[in-house]
């Protein structure tokens, strides 16, 4: 027996939820970033699963673009974290309130 579409979607939902938990409960900016990556990958799994079962190649193309955007996002985000660390000597997001007035 082969795994069904539903199993892939449930796995994807669980991974996404773990990512959401990480973003909402952690304070270390690096771990929050990794949780965002986890959520992106959960979405990718959904896209590939649907691409197989529908069947339509567009889902896999979309995953390709998600990866490109994720690469850009990681580069810029880590640069921002490094820039903040240079100023504050910390990656704790509670200490980063320079956009707050």
């Amino acid at each position: 027996m082969k795994p069904t579409l539903e199993m892939y979607l449930i796995l994807s939902a669980v991974l996404f939820t773990i990512g959401v938990t990480g973003v909402l409960t952690r304070r270390n900016a690096l771990i929050i970033f990794m949780s965002v990556e986890l959520m992106l990958n959960a979405a990718n799994l959904t896209l590939v699963a649907y691409s197989r079962f529908l069947p339509d190649i567009s889902g896999q193309i979309f995953v390709f673009f998600v990866m490109a955007v994720a690469a850009a996002e990681v580069a810029v985000g880590l640069a921002i974290i490094v820039a903040i660390f240079r100023q504050k000597e910390s990656v704790d997001i509670d200490k980063v309130n320079l956009m707050k007035w």
Binding site: K2, E6, V48, S51, R52, F53, Q60
Partner: peptide, 14 residues
Amino acid sequence: GAFDPNAPLQPEMG
């Protein structure tokens, strides 16, 4: 609620 649970597995194409 989103899909047909008995959706057939399609041939590979990736």
